[in-house]
Design a protein around this nucleic acid. Structure first.
Lengths: 189, 189, 189, 189
DNA sequence: CATGAATGAGCTTTCATTCAT
DNA sequence: TATGAATGAAAGCTCATTCAT
């Protein structure tokens, strides 16, 4: 079944090209022509792998969602707050390591349904809520802090990403430390 | 004596209509026709007040930037960290009170230059850095926390906004509390 | 009846303004706004004196046709070929003296019916045919030359005008001499 | 191996269609739709071969300039005035043979920069000046006639064309004779 | 009469999508 | 599969014309 492999691989190539283009000029300003050129194929060929221009954004979303799910999984053992710190470091590292994915996020945010960005952040919060619950069980949380503060941790991470997207001069990779200082150390008992 | 209302007022009306439309369908999907219909005028009349479709987004940006600058000014007296808490509450309240402005933000983020969103967040951080510096001077800050953590406070606020934009089920107005719990109480000495 | 006079005078003012604008940017690129601004009145006021944009061009045509008819009339006494030379000089002088009218000609040529430029040149030729017929009667014409060569005399004049319109560096006013050298002296017996 | 016809041929087809339309209704009144319909293609397809509506006029200009240059080249041997007569005949024949090109001229005249009609007539005059200089060297020119009368020869030709454009009843093809009678025979020693 | 804000038909241009080769 | 010419719906913008003041 080399066909299948080739087809999937080609699809990935085109998606990667599309994400480079989207990252560079934004989805709104990206033409199918640009994507085809970046992928080194003919315009019409894009449609052999994707149904429409929007399907490319959809695929970009799925690609990001997968990346995001990966990074949330398998945090290993240890005290919950240590694992939370690790989580923050991993998410930030992931974003810094995949700048094209990161830059496309702003278009995913703007794109609304049917893309379910809400689910991504819901999952994100769920994982952190879990860690906070465990931390609470471990007696590691300061009074007044609980699972309901997961939203703030997610916010701190995504807010840093946002500031970096809007102002690339900001050193995104170095922001994991400050986020942990505030959002992990600051909630410790 | 102008014909009906003065130019500036009419301009504001149209801008408000535009922002309602942008908030509803996103800038990318918003047509000049939609804006005109929402404003109850003819398509061509929009161009009597705005040079182009992009000029509407530019004006929306300026409107938001003004709102944002307002909310950052005049925090009154008191301990720096108390003022920081007030700032957080005011920013969140402002966003919740102007949902159209808030919803347009996602398009402003996506729109890149010449819109200078970077400046907005730079200003935002500058104000908070100042507060943190003052808090440090008051001996109110926990060890390891300093002005360089301003980015995290901004992030926490904007990150909550972002999660709300993506998932309106989230109670944005109620998030000021959790943000303060973590980002203000969590950095106290 | 001062009303009538004023009205007609105002109409002339606007027409003159229009012809300046047309001369400067061409009819196709001339907006009613431009004409109004040049005349120092409001856009809507133009319509109090002219039915439409095309009516302005029509009026310009009539103005030119009148000028043209004037210049063809009353050549005075003397040998026919001398009067032909005078005619050439007067037409060229008229064109050089009314550069706005001259420059608008190119738009009149391009504008086709209902503007009857054909009639203008028909009249022009008729006058010259007459002169040539008289010259023939006087035995002043070289063999082989007759009224049917009127078209060439008109052509020489209008062709010089054309070359000047297309290339203002050409000294239109000085071209009467060469035209006479060829088209008058060249047909003398 | 291109799909149907090669790009250049297709471009020519469209240009020819455009020139038919321009000749029929004038450039100002010609819509891209008209051109597409005349060419039997879709409106958008015009833009695969021409950047803009103006580019069509530009191409028409270039097409005419090429035609004009052709007709001025290679006059063969013989006395200079004989060659001048040939030139006149050839230019008139060319115009009569390409009525679409001829009719578009009026729009080219009206269109101003960046179209360089001045250069076309400058070239035209240069060729004739050369012939007149040669004729002078041959002693074939009447006293008082010299290269500076080239402008009148060009004028006679273009002026006939102009009168025909404005009044198609005029038999353009038959006007070479009268022009030669006056502008060639009339300047002979 | 004079104004200029408002109108909306009409035009150019773009570009996602299709399909014959 | 791959191509890229062709399509045509759509949308931004212009501007002649109207008309309430």
């Amino acid at each position: 079944m080399p066909k299948r492999v080739d087809r999937a691989a080609r699809r990935e190539e085109i998606l990667a090209a599309a994400m480079r283009v989207f990252a560079r000029k934004g989805f709104a300003a990206s033409r199918i022509d640009d994507v085809a050129a970046e992928a080194g194929i003919a315009k019409g060929s894009v449609y052999l792998y994707f149904d429409s221009r929007d399907a490319l954004l959809r695929a970009a979303f799925e690609s990001y969602a997968a990346l995001s799910a990966d990074v949330l999984a398998g945090l290993g053992p240890g005290p919950a707050l240590d694992r939370l710190a690790t989580l923050v470091r991993r998410v930030v590292a992931m974003l810094a390591a995949h700048p094209d994915h990161a830059r496309v996020l702003v278009d995913l945010w703007a794109s609304g349904p049917p893309l379910d960005m809400a689910a991504v952040y819901r999952d994100h919060r769920a994982v952190i809520e879990d860690l906070l619950r465990q931390a609470a069980g471990e007696g590691a949380l300061r009074a007044g802090i609980g699972p309901e503060h997961a939203v703030v941790v997610v916010a701190a991470i995504e807010g840093c990403l946002l500031q970096w997207l809007v102002d690339p001069a900001l050193p995104l990779a170095e922001l994991a430390g400050p986020v942990i200082d505030v959002c992990v150390e600051g909630i410790r008992a």
